[in-house]
Structure formats: structure tokens, C-alpha cells
């Protein structure tokens, strides 16, 4: 039999509406989980630097606990485990005219809880990387704690946080495939369902692998643009427009033109 190239290319050119929907679902799930995970990470990460021991301990416990549990186990616990124990059962809801299935909600929340623990460590490192001297300088100018946090700490911590955040999102795009286990209709579940009827599983899996590859490649490009913009303080000129940044990012040695000048 061998690899059915015709079938393979047909799947790429004509993926069909159900598959495209699943692709949108994959991306939506990753983005929502990442946004929620970032919020959890900000709260827990700053919590780990709290002046109150109880808050520090609680946040450290969260990180320790969640990083010790496989995402797959977490997802099944949230969706099936809690329902089986009668603790909580996710149900389909409508939000702004969009139908969110029970399994989709569980997947987003589970992935966010998982991501939050990792983001917390990233946030904590970022905040600690901001030189204490700058915080003292800001305080000496009469800035309040909030002003110091929002104007000095967060903008600088962001530069440190963005690269590992990007790596986590890259990871998240692929980790969404685990949501297939609780029945989220994302691209991997659809691929498996099609494999069962067509028996061309290798071709279909190659297509889905390529899809993940394209998603992560697109994200890596976006991440590069963001990082270039955040490096503005290293060069004596205003922040570039996004397309200028893209050109610099895609050129062989990013930013070399400025350094020579």
C-alpha cells in the first residue's frame, strides 16, 4: 500500500468544515487557557513574594502540587472524576451566542490551572530580576507601592517574562491534544475518528502533526516580533512599527544594522 500521497494532499487542500472548526477550537482552547494561566501565574507569582508568610506558603503549595500532577490526570479528574464523586459536573453553556461544551470548559480550566503553576515561577523570576535599586529610586521619588509595581516592576519584568511565556504557549498549543481524552472536538480527536473510518491513520497523523508545526511556527514568528519590540530600550531610537520589526526579525542577524551604525 505505502503512503497515500493523493489522500494526504487532499486532506491538506480540502480539510473540510469539521476539521477547520476543530482547528479553531484547538487555538481558542490554547489562547484561553494561556490567558487564564497568566492571570493565575500573576496572582500566585506575586503571592510568592508577599510579605505575609501564609500567602507565600499557600502559593508555594499550589506550585508544588500542580507541577507534580500530569496534565492528563488533572483533566480527567476535573471532567470525569469530580462528576463521578458528585462534587461538580461541567455542563454546556452559552456565552455571547457561542456554545461552550462541558468538556471544552473543563479542558480550558485544567490547562489553565496547570499553566498557572509554571507561569507563577516565570513571573516570580521576572519580578526578582528587576534591580532592587530601581525600586528604591522610585520609592525615593515618592511613588506609591502600586505606582512602583505598575510603572517600574511590571514593565521590566515583562521583558524577562515574555521569552519563557512564549515557550509555554508553544507548548500549550500542543498540549491541547490531551483534551481529546475528555472528548473535546479538537484536531487530534477528529484525526483519530477519521482514522477509524478510513484506516489511513499515518497520513492523517502526518497532516495533524504538520498542523501543530504550522501553529507553533506562526507563534514563534509573533513571539520574535514581540521580543524585538521589547528590546527597544537597548537601542537609541523609538520603537519600530510591527512590519519593521518583522523585517529585522526575519533578517539573518536580527538588529545587526543598528549595532553597526
Amino acid at each position: 500500500m505505502g503512503f497515500d500521497w493523493a489522500f494526504f494532499f487532499d486532506r491538506i487542500v480540502n480539510p473540510g468544515a469539521p476539521y477547520l472548526n476543530a482547528l479553531v477550537r484547538t487555538v481558542t482552547m490554547a489562547v484561553l487557557a494561556m490567558v487564564l494561566g497568566l492571570l493565575i501565574g500573576l496572582v500566585v507569582g506575586f503571592g510568592r513574594l508577599s510579605r505575609y508568610g501564609v500567602i507565600r506558603a499557600a502559593c508555594a503549595f499550589y506550585v508544588w502540587l500542580i507541577r507534580g500532577i500530569p496534565v492528563l490526570v488533572l483533566l480527567v479528574m476535573l471532567f470525569s472524576g469530580m462528576a463521578a464523586a458528585g462534587l461538580f459536573r461541567f455542563s454546556d453553556i452559552e456565552l455571547l451566542g457561542l456554545k461552550l461544551t462541558a468538556s471544552f470548559q473543563a479542558a480550558v480550566i485544567g490547562l489553565a490551572i496547570h499553566e498557572g503553576a509554571y507561569m507563577a515561577e516565570i513571573v516570580r523570576n521576572g519580578v526578582q530580576a528587576v534591580a532592587l535599586g530601581q525600586v528604591e529610586a522610585a520609592r525615593s521619588l515618592g511613588m506609591s507601592s502600586w505606582q512602583v509595581t505598575w510603572r517600574i516592576v511590571i514593565p521590566q519584568a515583562t521583558r524577562v517574562i515574555v521569552p519563557p511565556f512564549g515557550n509555554d504557549f508553544n507548548h500549550m498549543l500542543k498540549t491541547t491534544s490531551l483534551a481529546s481524552v475528555i472528548g473535546v472536538q479538537e484536531i487530534f480527536l477528529l484525526t483519530e475518528a477519521m482514522s477509524a473510518t478510513t484506516f489511513k491513520s499515518f497520513e492523517l497523523l502526518t497532516v495533524v502533526a504538520l498542523n501543530y508545526l504550522v501553529l507553533t511556527a506562526i507563534w514563534n514568528t509573533i513571539q520574535g516580533v514581540i521580543e524585538t519590540r521589547l528590546r527597544a530600550h537597548e537601542i537609541d531610537r523609538p520603537v519600530r512599527t510591527w512590519w519593521q520589526s518583522l523585517v529585522v526579525y526575519l533578517s539573518p542577524t536580527p538588529g545587526s544594522a543598528e549595532r553597526r551604525a
Binding site: 529610586a137 520609592r139 507601592s145 521590566q156
Partner: peptide
């Protein structure tokens, strides 16, 4: 309370050994 300490600092300027300029500005 820290609110009032913040007010007291406003008119006391300080210059540090390590300059401590805000690096992102």
C-alpha cells in the same frame, strides 16, 4: 502608615551610588 511615608519622601531627593535610572525609560 505607608501612605504618609510616601508623602514625606516627595521632597527629599536621593542620588544613589549605582544611579538606579529606570532601565526601560
Amino acid at each position: 502608615p505607608s501612605r504618609q511615608v510616601v508623602l514625606q519622601r516627595r521632597h527629599i531627593g536621593m542620588v544613589f551610588q549605582q544611579f538606579n535610572l529606570f532601565w526601560h525609560m
